[in-house]
Design a protein around this nucleic acid. Structure first.
Lengths: 247, 247
DNA sequence: GAGTGGCTTTGACACAGATCAAAAGCGGAG
DNA sequence: CTCCGCTTTTGATCTGTGTCAAAGCCACTC
């Protein structure tokens, strides 16, 4: 498979992630500077965007689709260490070599910035530096949340946690009237879920079947998930179901 | 136990972490501004510095000692999500409520900054903002490294990884002529190690005994560890022993 | 419509690490 | 010196998840 879709967006003002990405705080002048150093790239599902250890001459924002960050040990054990959704940032300013392998989990469009000029803009444009700090702090929180999942939760709780996270994100993105039920497509294969959760794909499959049998979720095909009662799912995840407000 | 030692440092120029903490890049003028909003606080080993959910009116740098960040589930399962060493930063600018419980693992001295004025300084002082971004990116890398340990390593590899990290830090701090052997004190109890590694304390104890039996490490008392061959330890940790340069 | 390849499910069994229990080591208080 | 409380070690057993193997399902191609 090769790159297929050419993205239709050309201008930042049409951009679907304009108000959430690194550029969120930029004013018109700043945006104009960014326009000069940016270019779009698309990848189809399964393609590797970059290998750990590769030289990396750009940083990027995810415009649409899902990408994953993974680490692999010599014997092949792999752990996903990040799930990149639209508006998330890829790459590390100040570092020339990629630390993680980045893979397009679904078809993917990125907005790339040449690294050197972008680094200069970080120094000269507080709006970008500040937004990047904020996003990095959010990612650090997410990583720490994930450490609890990896270190202390059972297989069933791990699956429920992952489903809850995706469900929550979709609930926010689709801003419907708030209900107790959500329907969404899993953007990950069983194997990718296993790599995210520190499990084997067989265990993932078994636990999904078990949650289905117990009526916590329902499936339509292999990928579409129906959650009738989010609170129930959160309970299965071992999280405070009331969001911690009342306790 | 109550606070005991009063810190001797009063001035930033004597400060042992002056060149590594958030203030590393500050010039004399900027330092003077920081001096106005800072104060030292000490904690003795075992004391809780702040509880998850507490209102938090300061951020801080660890000056000396070790602190840990932990998350706890309702049923008591605990996961350490960060190990804070001298120069590390505590707290999140822009957030009024602590996300994690912070505990002094050893006797601890912190340099605290009142949160509001510190946040203003982030906006007005690029040197601080930039250094904080850099430190946050480093912590994110460390958290992701740790996700691999939690998700994919065996108990023995987890212990070896933790020892390797502490050994590496000590080797750097003590800047001796580079040898293949290191001696250091564990700043953590078996239980704290278990909470860091997602294991039980019994498993931690057994694996340490096993590494000792196999000659990978030696112990002097319960806390002092002697590593004769760091490469051997790195191998046990499942990491690239050559640091990835040759492969 | 049969064949192919990728993903997913299910089953049988093995084992690493958890759990439960007890004893040993060690430092501080009286 | 002895007692007490805390941490650590060690032992016996249990169990959740991994491993190995086979079959099912689905989309696509020829």
């Amino acid at each position: 498979m090769l790159d297929t879709k050419v993205p239709e967006i050309k201008d930042c003002s049409d951009c679907p992630i304009r108000h959430r990405a690194v550029c969120a705080r930029c004013d018109a002048d700043e945006l104009a500077l960014l326009e000069d150093i940016k270019y779009y790239r698309s990848f189809s599902a399964g393609q590797t965007v970059m290998w750990a250890g590769d030289r990396m001459d750009f940083v990027a924002s995810v415009v649409s689709g899902v990408a994953s960050l993974t680490q692999t040990m010599e014997d092949g054990r792999t752990q996903m260490v990040g799930l990149l959704l639209p508006s998330d940032f890829v790459g590390r300013p100040g570092r020339a070599v990629a630390s993680y392998t980045v893979t397009a989990t679904s078809d993917l469009v990125t907005c790339c910035f040449r690294r050197k000029p972008f680094e200069q803009m970080i120094s000269s444009t507080p709006h970008i530096a500040h937004r990047l700090l904020e996003m990095t702090l959010d990612e650090l929180d997410a990583a720490r949340e994930w450490m609890l999942v990896l270190g202390r939760k059972t297989a069933r709780e791990k699956i429920a946690s992952l489903l809850a996270i995706i469900a929550r994100r979709d609930a926010i993105a689709q801003q419907g009237p708030k209900t107790n039920s959500v329907v969404f497509d899993l953007p990950l294969t069983r194997e990718a879920m296993a790599d995210y959760l520190g499990l084997t794909l067989e265990t993932v499959s078994r636990q999904i079947s078990s949650l289905k049998k117990d009526g916590v979720i329902a499936l339509e095909g292999k990928r579409r998930v129906i959650v009738h009662d989010i609170d129930r799912l959160m309970e299965e995840a071992g999280d405070d179901s009331d969001g911690g407000f009342l306790s």
